[in-house]
Amino acid sequence: MPDGSLPLVLGTLIALGALTFVLMPLLSAVDENEDPRSAYSRDGVRAAQSSNISPDEGLAIEALREIEFDQATGKLSDSDYEELKAKYTALALAELRERDDAAITSVAREALAEGEDPVEAAVRAVQSRRPNCGNCGPRPESDSVYCSSCGSYLPGACGSCGVKITQPGARFCTGCGGQLAAA
């Protein structure tokens, strides 16, 4: 091997390697819908959704937290505190409802895409948020453990996999083994 050719050979090999690395994505087709790193799936739906400047989510709750803290450290007068609290509670509720609505809407849209009745799906989604008594139907209180009409245990569903939880006091999901939030 002639003197000084080693770096050249080495360099060529590195360059070819890099070229393969860089051009690979062009040679193998990328499935836009499957690859989670693709921004352009579902006919640009995802992209279109995010293409507007959306108001920041959670601003109001953040503000409320700060108002509480500022009041506790004595920076806000009581009247200012009440006024701001009322205003930002209203805004936070509006945010919260917007989120809920958005969640329901997306459920309905998915149902539509899968050929189901979107209204049914939305109703189901709303109802699934409330505990459901086997005897008396949906209960109004979201945090009750036992039915207030007949006293029987209110079954829930696992937050991660959706499996029904019927055992009172269960700490882990029978479906996925995940820890249950309220346990």
């Binding site: 989510e57 709750i61 989120r99 945090d143 829930g156 937050g159 309220a182 346990a183």
Partner: peptide, 18 residues
Amino acid sequence: RGYAAEMAPQHEEVLVGA
């Protein structure tokens, strides 16, 4: 994870209901 994650556990609690 941000705000989106924050509200989610509330749903989970409701869902589990235990």
